[in-house]
Structures are given as C-alpha cells and as structure tokens.
C-alpha cells in the first residue's frame, strides 16, 4: 500500500485529461521540495552525522569497533530481545486486531486506548513500573529474592520493558486496516465451510500482509532502539545487560565517538534490513 504507484498506474494517470497542467506539476514540485527540505533538516542531517562520525577514522576503524567483546555481547543481547519480543507482540497484535476489527462489542474504544497507552507512557515510567513490581522493594521483590530469580537488572527485565514499549505497534497497524477491509470475504469463506484458521490464513492474511509487515518493522525497530525504559531496568553491567542503545551511550561517554556511532549505524542498518527484505519480495512478485 505504501509501496507507491506502479508504472502502469502512473502512465494511466498521466494520460487522464486535466492531469498534466502547469499547476499540478507546480504542486508536485513544491510537495517534493517541501518533503525533502523537511526530511533533510530533521532526519537526513542527524543520520548523516551518525554515519560520518562512524566513518571519520576510516572503514578499518569502523569495523574494528565491532570486534570488541562487549559490543558483540550487546549486539547479541539486542537480537535476542527482539527475537522474543517481536513474535510475541505480533501474535498479540493479530489476535487483538481480529477481536477488535471483526466484532462489535461494548468498550471497544476503551480497549483500543489501553493498547495505545504504552506509546504515551514516558520510557522512564515504563522502566520504573517494573522496578516497582520486581525490584527488591517491589511487590514481588521478596518472593523473587527468596527463590534467587532475577528479573530486573537481568535479561527478563529487559525483555519485559521492551515488550511493554513495543506492545501497540502491530495491533495499531492492523486494526484500522482490518476495519477498513470489512468482514464480507471472511463471512463468505465461513459460510462455504472453511474453518477459522483456514479463513484467517487464506482470506485475511493475504489482504493484511503489507500492513502486518509494516507493523512488524516498526515493532522491531522500536524493540532494538529502545533506550529509556531499558536503561532503568538494565543495571548497565557491561557485556551482560547492556543492549546496543545502552552500549552506544557507554561508548559515547568514553569519548569513543567512532565506536558509539558505528554501533548506532549498525542499529539503523538492522532496522532497515526488514524493509529491504520487503522491497525484495515486492520486486520479485512483479
């Protein structure tokens, strides 16, 4: 959907009467100029800063940054966390979108708002709530301590905080889309005797595929990039509980700007990886 117009479509549009006027091309160029200008100042310039600093001492130093043991541990931890959080939240997102988009029930707006809530919660608070629950002074603190289970200042805490922060993304992407698409085709499939799962996989999924991909991409990007909430529950133990964003901060604070921005650049590349895969799939289909 967000993939943009196809060649045929563009050609067809161009051939329509009244399309190719002076004003419409003026509007087009003004829009493109505004978009590029805005993005250049706000997005490309900071991104360029990241990459230029990362490469300021040459490619060799850039790759050297990734040989550090703690950096590797941070990359591993971030990938592990994303590997747990993204699938879990995807399943939740699909289930929630099915319940909310396909059925009418009371309190629906309330439920949607609760799903949105983690976006609005300050990352500091997202971390704090888990400290209040599982910290030594927290609700379950004593119980956990007696059983020698660590949740905060260990990997489970990081997973939970990340899950909290990235909770809404898949659901948020799917709900409006599925509402827009309506129930007719699914109802037809069920009437014709298809089972629930079969209907979902053969009727619904193909229609929501790209929306789902976008949701997963956003969820994944946020999961890998989350800093504030994770910083509260991590304990900052080098090589053990530092994720990539935390490691970036550590390196930056050590005046190792090349290393810090190298890790940051890798993070951005990881996040677009999913996007690149999506583009490849799209291209193949054509």
């Amino acid at each position: 959907m967000a993939g943009g117009p196809s060649k045929e479509m563009l050609a067809e549009i161009a051939s329509r009467p009244g399309r190719d006027t002076l004003i419409s091309s003026a509007v087009k160029y003004v829009f493109i100029a505004l978009s590029l200008g805005f993005l250049a100042a706000l997005l490309f310039a900071p991104l360029a800063t990241v990459f230029i600093t990362a490469l300021s001492k040459g490619w060799e130093m850039y790759f050297e940054s990734f040989k550090d043991e703690d950096t590797l541990a941070a990359i591993k931890l971030t990938l592990t966390v994303a590997a747990i959080v993204v699938p879990t939240n995807t399943i939740f997102g699909i289930a929630a979108a099915w319940a909310i988009a396909k059925f009418e029930f009371r309190g629906k707006s309330f439920l949607i708002t609760l799903i949105d809530l983690p976006i609005a919660v300050s990352p500091v608070i997202s971390g704090l709530v888990y400290v209040l629950l599982f910290g030594a002074q927290g609700w379950f603190g004593l119980w956990l301590q007696e059983r020698d289970i660590s949740i905060i200042f260990a990997v489970p805490g990081i997973v939970l905080a990340t899950m909290f922060v990235t909770f809404p993304y898949v659901a948020r992407e799917l709900i409006p889309l599925m509402q827009q698409l309506g129930n007719d085709e699914e109802e037809a499939a069920i009437t014709l005797g298809a089972g629930g799962l079969m209907t979902f996989f053969h009727v619904t999924l193909p229609k929501i595929r790209w929306g789902l991909v976008y949701g997963v991409i956003l969820c994944n990007a946020r999961a890998m990039g989350e800093f504030g909430a994770v910083s509260v529950v991590s304990g900052h133990v080098r090589g053990l509980t530092t994720t990539m964003p935390l490691h970036v901060e550590i390196l930056y604070n050590e005046y190792n700007f090349v290393g810090a921005f190298a890790v940051a650049s890798l993070l951005t590349l990881l996040a677009v990886l999913t996007l690149i895969i999506k583009s490849l799939v799209e291209m193949k289909r054509k």
Binding site: I84, P87, T88, D148, I149, I151, F153, A154, P156, V159
Partner: peptide
C-alpha cells in the same frame, strides 16, 4: 496455536530468568 506459542514464550522467559543469577 496462540496458546502453545505463548506457553513457549513464557517458558523461554523463565529459562532466561534462570540465567540471571548463579556463577
């Protein structure tokens, strides 16, 4: 299917909780 996956996830969480302590 959802249920089984959730269980698997919870299991993984517990496993990770285990690695937190201990030397």
């Amino acid at each position: 299917m959802n249920r089984r996956r959730t269980l698997a996830c919870l299991g993984l969480l517990t496993l990770l909780a285990g690695c937190g302590g201990g030397d």
